[in-house]
Amino acid sequence: MKDIPDKNLLLFRSCLVSVEYPGIESSTKYVFEKLGIDYGISEKQTCCTGLGHYSDVFDQVSTTAIGARNFKVAQNLGRPNLVMMCATCYAINKKSVKLLNNKDDLRDEINTLFEENGLDHLKYEKNDLTPTENIFHFVDILYGKKDEIKKHIKYDLSQYKIATHHGCHYCKVHYEDTIAGVRDPNIIDELIEACGCKTIGWYDHKRASCGTGFRQRYSNPDLSFTATADKMNSLKDEGVEIVVHLCPNCHIQFDRYQPLISKREGREFKAIHLNISQFIAIAMGADWESVVGVQAHTSKIDSVITELKEVES
């Protein structure tokens, strides 16, 4: 397994997290602080361009140039380890580092653009960062602290039936860097186990997409929501009450559109949807509103988690 840092981290802010589920960010900060993880945030960091890039609005040169700029922001702060709260940010930034290190013509083109616009200080030198040593998803960081997580659990959530969804851009883009499996992904399952709970493990459609497909949600909604319904039906058949994932776009598809899928399928889906940082924060005793941000959820969390029982000492 790759070395996982716990210091000199720049927590990379996500557009979708900030707009849709800010509780993911506050929960991640809460859990990091509980675990003594050294992180910072920069107001100079910009969007990774993910939504625009995968919808063919931003070309690869523009996306990689923005990545190079964000990498320099991190380096200048002395925090060269970028940690993503969004699977798309993870995939985009890891690819940008690989391209900047391996495509001399692309790196030269971007550095020329910086120079022509008076941004020499942003120039990227080959191997300034490396994809395996400097670009992480926050689940990677938490995985390195699994044993420490166990020491901070206050509430027992083991009474609920829990399943996981890992997200395409974590498991299906950079296979070689994915922790705990890609064909049967289990990194979230293992983090939930660190909280004293068991998931249902493998289920039909576990590895399937949430159905978003970025523009597919809007340009081809029937296909998009059919894929989502397949997954929701599988989870319903298993009696799942809590679905835990690591990507805000997946979160939107499952949580915001669950009422629509229920109507579409003629079947009521009642599961609640949590990011893994929110799940761990709840288990650690975080405030539901100021930290977990339950008020931003469409499927109300207290419709399933009706009581919190303290862990027996």
Rank of each mutant, 00 (worst) to 15 (best):
C48T: 05
C48F: 03
C48E: 02
C48L: 11
C48G: 05
C48W: 05
T49K: 09
T49E: 10
G50T: 14
G50K: 10
G50I: 06
L51N: 14
G52F: 07
G52S: 07
G52R: 01
H53N: 14
H53C: 05
Y54K: 11
Y54V: 00
S55G: 15
S55I: 04
D56S: 12
D56F: 12
D56H: 15
V57W: 00
V57D: 09
V57S: 03
F58D: 10
F58Y: 08
F58L: 11
D59Q: 12
D59R: 03
D59E: 12
Q60E: 15
V61Q: 10
V61G: 00
V61E: 15
S62Y: 10
S62K: 09
T63C: 09
T63V: 06
T63Q: 13
T63W: 03
T63R: 10
T63F: 03
T63M: 13
T64W: 13
T64I: 06
T64E: 05
T64L: 14
G67E: 08
G67C: 13
A68C: 03
A68Y: 00
A68S: 02
R69L: 03
R69H: 13
R69C: 02
R69Y: 15
N70R: 10
N70I: 00
N70H: 02
N70A: 09
N70W: 01
F71D: 08
F71I: 10
K72H: 14
V73E: 12
V73S: 11
V73W: 06
A74I: 04
A74S: 12
Q75F: 04
N76D: 15
N76Q: 11
L77M: 11
G78W: 08
G78F: 06
G78Y: 10
R79C: 02
R79M: 12
R79V: 03
R79A: 08
R79S: 04
P80E: 10
P80Y: 13
P80Q: 13
P80I: 01
N81W: 11
N81Q: 03
L82A: 06
L82I: 15
L82Y: 01
L82H: 01
L82W: 09
